[in-house]
Structure formats: structure tokens, C-alpha cells
Amino acid sequence: MTIDAHQHFWHYDPVRDSWITDDMAVIQRDFLPEDLEPVLVQNGIDGCVAVQADQSLAETQFLVQMAQTYDIVKGVVGWVDLTAPDLRDQLSELAQYPELKGFRHVAQAEPNDFLARPAIVAGIRQLAEFGFTYDILIYPNQLKAALHLVREVPEVSFVVDHIAKPYVKTGEITRWSNFMTQLAAQPNVQCKLSGLVTEADWQNWSKRDFFPYLNVLFDRFGPDRLMFGSDWPVCLVAANYTQVKTLIEEYVDPWGSDVRDKIFGANAVSFYRL
């Protein structure tokens, strides 16, 4: 089964979705499974993992409903308040939905130490009891906190979204590489090959802009802990779906069909229990 491990759905709300700025006007509209399905078919992808974009339980319920309604949606990464006093009760209730695989918070919008805060670490630790995963969404200057988190909670399976958003546009790589090397040394951490084009020059990126970063990831994580994600529809500000998929396909191709099958499906199926 081929899987896109990272994409989003929403009914566009200009107030709630204020992060979609005017320079991202191409995605200032609704994006739903019926919009994605023909794109997946065209690109030979069997299904996807829908990831939260809003910090609300309503978002989690919306995505679960999408997964229950559309066969292409194989799993959901939702949102829950990790500091809620009744977190365990909420997780117990949410665990009734087999479509719900894990959780994420838009930590990139939080202070640099957010993921290392004791209350957040304690909340994420509770995910282990229910077998939930955690997606890490950060910028490079938040990698130190992420490293602290994954070391503190070895019982939870983590995946780094968008390769931690390195500064591709300026070519900075050393500090990012050092931290990603340390993250990769933790056996409970995987990484999504997603969100690359939006960290480059949207209008003038080249495939070779990303190769140094991909080289680091394949060397440190290896092909068993990496998974393809399109970040559709956010990717549309810089590239269409086929361009995003082809970028990773062409890099992976020399590794052979076994590795390609892992990156484009098997690893995501295993991590998210699809």
C-alpha cells in the first residue's frame, strides 16, 4: 500500500486560519478528501494520513469523520490539550476511534522551549498507555527542546514533521544536521520527508537544493525510519503534488524498489498502524 503520510483538510475560515497569509492565496479555500482523491489516483498513492492544522478537539473530530467517510483517509493525527487536568480521560475516550493514530501541536508557533516544558513532557508521556504516536512540528531553533522530549519519553513513538523545517532558502545546514544526528540516535524517532518545498524559494527552487538535507537524513535515519509526505495542500504555494512526489522519488530511485516501497508506504503503515 502506498501512503502519503502527511496532508491536511479544512473548511477555510479566514479568522481561524489566519496563518494562511495573502502570499498563500492559492490555499485560501476549502480542501477536502474529494479534492485530494483524484490527485492521489493520478500519482499512484493508495491513501493518506490526515494531520491537524487547528488546535481544537473539533479539529480532531472533523478529521476522524473524514477518515470514517472516505476510504483514502487511512489514519488521523489529531490535537488534544496535553496540559488538561483530565487528559487521561480524554485520551481514553478518543482511543475508541481506531482511525485516530496520534497527536500533534503546532509547536513551531510556540516558544523554543515548549516541547521541553515539564507539563508538555508529562502529557506526551500519557500517550504511551493508549499506543498513540506524536508528530513533532518545529523549526531548527526548537530542536534542542525536541531532543530533550524524545529522550525523556522513550516509550512514545515520535516522527519529525517536515524534516524540522531547515533553512533551505539560505542553505544553512550545520546546526540542523548536528541536532538531527542526535535525534536519529534515538530509536523511538522517525522523520517525514515532507514540507521541503515550502522552506525553499517558492518560485525558484531546484531539486538539488534539497539533496544535502536528504543526504543527512538517509545517512542518519536510514531508509527504515523515513516516510514520504506531500504536505498537500500547503505544498501548493511552491509546487504541485506531482512535483513534490517526484522530488523524493528521484532521490530514492537509486536505492532500489525495496527502499522506495518503505519510503512510500511500508514505514508509514508500520508507524501509524494503518
Rank of each mutant, 00 (worst) to 15 (best):
V189Q: 01
E155C: 02
N240I: 04
F132P: 00
K165E: 11
G123W: 09
V159P: 00
T181A: 10
A50Y: 04
V269Q: 14
M227V: 06
V234E: 00
I20H: 13
R175D: 13
L82E: 00
L32H: 04
Q142A: 14
Q108D: 12
I248H: 07
A50Q: 00
H148P: 00
W202V: 05
Y213C: 09
A145E: 07
R104S: 01
S157P: 00
I27L: 11
L115V: 09
D22Q: 13
C191Y: 12
V237K: 14
A50P: 01
I45V: 11
A164Y: 09
G222L: 15
F218M: 05
H105V: 06
N240K: 06
L115N: 06
P166Y: 08
L183M: 06
D261K: 10
K192H: 12
A95W: 11
R104W: 10
D224P: 03
F211I: 10
Y134V: 09
V252G: 08
G75M: 07
A67W: 02
E110P: 01
L217M: 02
I136M: 01
R220N: 05
E249Y: 09
V77R: 04
Y251S: 02
V259P: 00
V106S: 12
F130I: 01
F211L: 09
L236Y: 11
Q190F: 13
G123F: 05
I248K: 09
P14S: 15
N240C: 08
L100C: 05
L94V: 01
P154C: 08
I173N: 04
L193S: 09
S206M: 10
I27K: 10
P38M: 13
I3S: 04
A84Q: 06
Y241A: 03
Y241G: 09
N112E: 07
A58E: 05
R88L: 06
L274A: 08
L32P: 02
L100E: 05
Q52F: 01
R125V: 03
S270E: 15
L149D: 05
T133K: 09
L57M: 06
A95G: 08
P254D: 14
R125E: 08
V39I: 13
W205E: 03
P223S: 14
T181R: 15
W19P: 07
R16F: 03
Y251I: 05
N215G: 04
V159F: 12
R175M: 15
C48S: 08
Q68Y: 07
S18D: 14
A109L: 11
V189H: 04
E93C: 08
E199D: 02
P254L: 15
G47F: 13
Y12R: 04
V269H: 10
D46G: 10
P85Y: 12
E34T: 05
E129F: 02
Y241L: 04
V26Q: 01
V156C: 10
D219H: 14
R273M: 12
A128M: 00
I173F: 11
S230N: 07
Q55M: 14
G123Q: 03
